[in-house]
C-alpha cells in the first residue's frame, strides 16, 4: 500500500502578518520560552485567531519567535510574529489574546506588517535595554563596580551551558551601563524595590544596561558576574532584571528605537 498523504486541499494561505509586543511580569518571569510558546498557541485557539498552519500530517501554527529574555528575568519588550488566514483587527486581536493569556503574560501592542518583504524581527532586534535592581547594594558601591567594568578592555565570564562550560567576553556587548537614581527606575519591580528601599533605608542600586545582541547572547546575569569579577560587588539578594526595550540600535546613542515604529500606522488602513 502506498504512503498515506493528507487528503483534501492544502491549508489556506496567510493573508496578513502581525507583530506582537508582550510583557512577562511578576511571578511569570519564571516561565521559560518554551512555556510561553505553549501558552501562546493555546491562547490563539481560545481567542479564535484564524491562524495559518503549515502543511503535512502535523500542521503547526505559523508563529515566529525572536530572542526571548532568559528564564527568571521579567520583560516589557518581547516580540513575536504571527500569520493569519483572515484579516484581523490588530486592537481586537490584542485584547482577545491578552484576555486568553494568564495575567503576567500581557499583550501590549499588535501591529500589522507587510505580508512580504518586511525586515525580519530578528534583524530589527539589534540590542536590548535592561534595568537591574540590586537590593542591599549601595549606589557608591555599584558605581565603583560599573566604572571598573567600563574601564576594562575585556571581561571574560564563564557560563555553564547544556554543552558544558564556555567562556565569553562580556565587555564588547556592553554598549552602556549606568547607575541611575532609584527615583528614575522604570520597571514595576525596580520602582517597587526603590520605594521600599526608600522606606526602610536598606540600600538599593538601579542599573541601566544596553547590550548588543550577539551569539552567544550576553545576559544581565553575565554582566553581573563580570561586575563581581572586577570589583568586590556581592549583592546579598538575587538581582532582579527587567528588559525594558529591544530594537534597532540608534547610531551613536547607545539606545534602541521602537522596532514596530516603521510599520505602525503604515499598513492596512
Amino acid at each position: 500500500m502506498a504512503s498515506r498523504t493528507p487528503e483534501g486541499p492544502p491549508p489556506p494561505p496567510a493573508v496578513q502578518r502581525l507583530r506582537l509586543r508582550y510583557a512577562r511580569r511578576e511571578r511569570l518571569r519564571f516561565s521559560s520560552h518554551r512555556d510561553f510558546q505553549r501558552a501562546l498557541e493555546r491562547a490563539l485557539r481560545r481567542a479564535e485567531v484564524p491562524m495559518a498552519y503549515s502543511a503535512g500530517f502535523s500542521p503547526h501554527p505559523k508563529v515566529s519567535y525572536a530572542g526571548a529574555a532568559p528564564t527568571g528575568s521579567a520583560s516589557e519588550a518581547e516580540y513575536v510574529e504571527i500569520a493569519v488566514t483572515a484579516r484581523c483587527d490588530p486592537e481586537r486581536l490584542r485584547a482577545a489574546l491578552d484576555a486568553a493569556l494568564p495575567p503576567g503574560l500581557d499583550v501590549l501592542e499588535v501591529v500589522e506588517v507587510p505580508l512580504h518583504g518586511a525586515t525580519p524581527l530578528a534583524d530589527l532586534l539589534e540590542a536590548g535595554v535592561w534595568e537591574v535592581a540590586l537590593l542591599g547594594v549601595g549606589e557608591a558601591e555599584a558605581r565603583r563596580a560599573v566604572d571598573a567594568l567600563l574601564a576594562a578592555g575585556s571581561a571574560e565570564v564563564e557560563r555553564v551551558t547544556t554543552k558544558g562550560r564556555r567562556v565569553l567576553d562580556v565587555r564588547p556587548a556592553v554598549l552602556r551601563l549606568d547607575v541611575v537614581d532609584p527615583a528614575a527606575a522604570r520597571s514595576t519591580t525596580g520602582r517597587a524595590l526603590a520605594a521600599s528601599s526608600a522606606a526602610s533605608g536598606e540600600p538599593c542600586a538601579i542599573l541601566h544596561l544596553v547590550v548588543r545582541h550577539a551569539a552567544p547572547a550576553v545576559r544581565p546575569d553575565d554582566v553581573l558576574t563580570a561586575l563581581r569579577g572586577v570589583s568586590d560587588l556581592a549583592p546579598p539578594e538575587a538581582p532582579r532584571a527587567t528588559r525594558l526595550a529591544q530594537g534597532p540600535l540608534l547610531e551613536g546613542a547607545a539606545a534602541v528605537a521602537d522596532p514596530l515604529a516603521a510599520e505602525r500606522g503604515a499598513v492596512g488602513v
Binding site: P12, V15, A47, E48, A86, R87, R92, A96, L97
Partner: peptide, 16 residues
Amino acid sequence: ASGVLEGAGTSAGGTP
C-alpha cells in the same frame, strides 16, 4: 465569526 476579525460584530467576518 471570531471576534478578532476585521468588522467582527457588524457583518460577516474577514475576507478569506
